[in-house]
Design a protein around this nucleic acid. Structure first.
Lengths: 396, 396
DNA sequence: TGACTTTATTCAAGACTTAGATTATGGTCT
DNA sequence: AGACCATAATCTAAGTCTTGAATAAAGTCA
């Protein structure tokens, strides 16, 4: 249904321009001729467009390829220092602020420890704002060169300018993080769930690269997720889709911290695994405690694999994805030791259709990709914006 | 990343034309002026486009609205007899072939009983082809006026020209139904899973109307489903997404006919409910048997509701849909008596986010909507095609 | 009848992509 | 070295498309 918006000739150019920019960004340096092939546009259009982009300094030349009997082709690429993106990871134990250039090379960072019990929203916001100033200074750039700030937070983020955050683990009921930050900076702001930002990092630069239909399952203390449908993140009607952690695997089963019972998170989140194994650990040494349980050969481990397999098979049946990426620190720890078993458990529950166990893979980016992923939110917006830039007319 | 195809100026018109046609189809009769508002196109564009469409006879005038102080507006609508669509429902007990005009009014029908045990592919194909001829004759139209044939079948349909069908209940392993039919007719053919076609009927004309993010859960002997994401059916990488029936609700639970364990279908499909209640019934009197069980107050009933609630809550967390539609004959029977309980069971498992129980609704179209939905596949293609028609140039 | 409204069409202008011609830049052959 | 060839990039003319403004059409109301 969805009346898909009328389109005018300008939209056309915008769309094509954005496509060309994406191709250049992900396809590395390429000649104008290569771009014709990749984008399907005619040489003429590519020529005028790259001309504009070069004039705007969004794109720069990047050497040339030796010819074999003809004019050598000039390579182009997105100007890595056209602008910068800041990514923020609001975690359980610290707030991390990192500055990236357009090629996602880290230029500066600032970390602030947060005492576990105290996640005062004001304090978190202040840390972020201080961090932003710090990385701008350390990176030796001006605020004007920053294209925006991406923030990854736990819990559910309501769409809207205030970016209301609900995060049980922080005791945040409806914290207007967006509003708090906007009071201290005028840079564009993009707030999203940390699992989603991490997932997007995997999608762009990690194990999910190149897929159109994928699912990221991100296991830390709890379990989060992200669904990629037709090449973009699926967010659902209220922007809350992808809560893989609360997929039910045992109706009426173990109580979950969300209040319901039998959620996947109540079995395969690190916190749940430790609880079931009878290990007491605070969030600081959760990692080593989990490693201990996994080594112990406890029956909890095989049960965990079973549950994860059941959950993943549900995902396969519902989404029929090309790939499932397991990430997050607990996911990487579990998957690193038991990937074969996880694949087998999933396959055992997925008989109805052809399913290749090896389409379940581990994330490549490690657990600290939340900030990186948050920065990609900025880049994403940049692609949309860059397409507009041309039509800005100044009144003298 | 999916390079989203370059666009040319022609694509623009195609897109806008298709949009206008859809608006007219679903928005009932409307004046050119109304269409400006709905589509966002300028009056000039609407005028030339409707001119083309009128010339092609795809659109016709439909009276006019009395003015109040100005030129009266002429109403337009899609020409209901511009063409016809045939919908086929390949069911357990019969093959139903129905002829619809563009407004989806039924014009003719032909049903053929199939003995339960014998689902010979050749025989089914012959029934369909005979039925097609029969309804064309009965409808008093010529084959040339038929825009296509949509077929809804059980099981999974592989994409491709052969339309390989895998249907356990029929004992079909890889039946090339598409190829079989194409041998007997040259009309365009669209084969899809029956649950999906039924879901599409609900989406277009039933309880799903107007939603962009919805889930259809279709319960008959087994359980099927369809996912609507951003206004269109989500099919996944291998076109097999939406298998709601094989969502796990109890890891390691009851064996399901798919071979795995603990699937939703193993608890809430009619066959499963009867089995669990210890009732023996063949497919002919499954309906009355199920009604009996539901009336009996057996504990199986409340367990069924629990399981369904668990499954639906998984769907809510994963997809965050605007609406969930329960359909299929068993679904309607169950939901007709126990909708409140089902809503409560779902809500009990969905504490983490705001969720309105009343977004779970019953289907409005009854169980015989498979053929109707199959016919919508033809209409959908018609929208795409009609946008092209203009550019056909004949060489004299 | 004439003033006023509202709807629909026509027209010139501006934006965009394309195919084909042209220019640019280097290699290769004699 | 100079003529010739191959490939890349740009320029040009043509064809589509949407749009806003002007114009035509078809009423109502006093």
């Amino acid at each position: 249904m969805g009346t898909p918006q009328r389109r005018t000739v300008r939209d056309l150019r915008r769309g094509n321009r954005a496509m060309l920019l994406r191709a250049l960004y992900f396809g590395g340096p390429a000649s104008r001729n290569d771009l014709c092939g990749v984008t399907g546009l005619s040489a003429a259009t590519v020529s005028t467009m790259t001309g504009d982009l070069l004039a705007d300094n969004v794109v720069v030349e990047a050497g040339q390829v030796d010819s074999d009997g003809g004019r050598p082709r000039v390579l182009l690429r997105v100007n890595p220092v056209y602008g910068y993106a800041i990514g923020v990871d609001v975690g359980e134990t610290q707030v991390r602020v990192e500055l990236f250039d357009l090629e996602m090379k880290e230029r500066a960072r600032a970390h602030y420890a947060v005492r576990s019990a105290r996640h005062d929203p004001e304090l978190v916001a202040r840390h972020i704002l201080t961090g932003v100033d710090a990385v701008i200074a350390e990176g030796g750039i001006s605020a004007g060169q920053v294209l925006g700030i991406g923030v990854g937070v736990p819990g559910i983020v309501e769409p809207g300018p205030d970016a209301l955050v609900r995060a049980k683990t922080f005791g945040w009921e409806a914290v207007p993080l967006g509003a708090l930050l906007r009071a201290g900076t005028s840079l564009p702001l993009y707030v999203d769930n940390g699992a989603k930002t991490m997932g997007q990092a995997e999608l762009w630069f990690g194990s999910g690269r190149g897929t159109r239909d994928a699912i990221m399952v991100l296991m830390g203390s709890g379990v989060g997720g992200m669904i990629v449908a037709d090449g973009s993140i699926y967010r659902g009607a209220g922007k809350a889709a992808g809560e893989v952690g609360h997929l039910k695997v045992v109706a009426g089963g173990r109580p979950c911290r969300c209040g319901a019972r039998g959620c996947l998170e109540a079995y395969v989140g690190a916190e749940a695994i430790l609880e079931r194994a009878g290990v007491v650990a605070d969030s600081a040494d959760e990692e080593s405690a989990l490693a201990g349980v996994l080594e112990s050969g406890s029956p909890v481990v095989s049960e965990t694999v079973e549950m994860l397999g059941a959950g993943l098979s549900s995902l396969v049946h519902l989404f029929n994805p090309e790939r499932i990426v397991i990430g997050g620190w607990a996911g990487l720890m579990l998957g690193g030791r038991l990937l074969a078993e996880i694949r087998a458990a999933t396959a055992a529950n997925t008989l109805a259709q052809p399913f290749h166990g090896d389409s379940i893979v581990l994330g490549r980016l490690g657990a600290d990709a939340v900030a990186l992923g948050a920065a990609t939110l900025v880049i994403e917006a940049f692609f949309r914006e860059a397409a507009f830039r041309q039509s800005v007319t100044t009144i003298a």
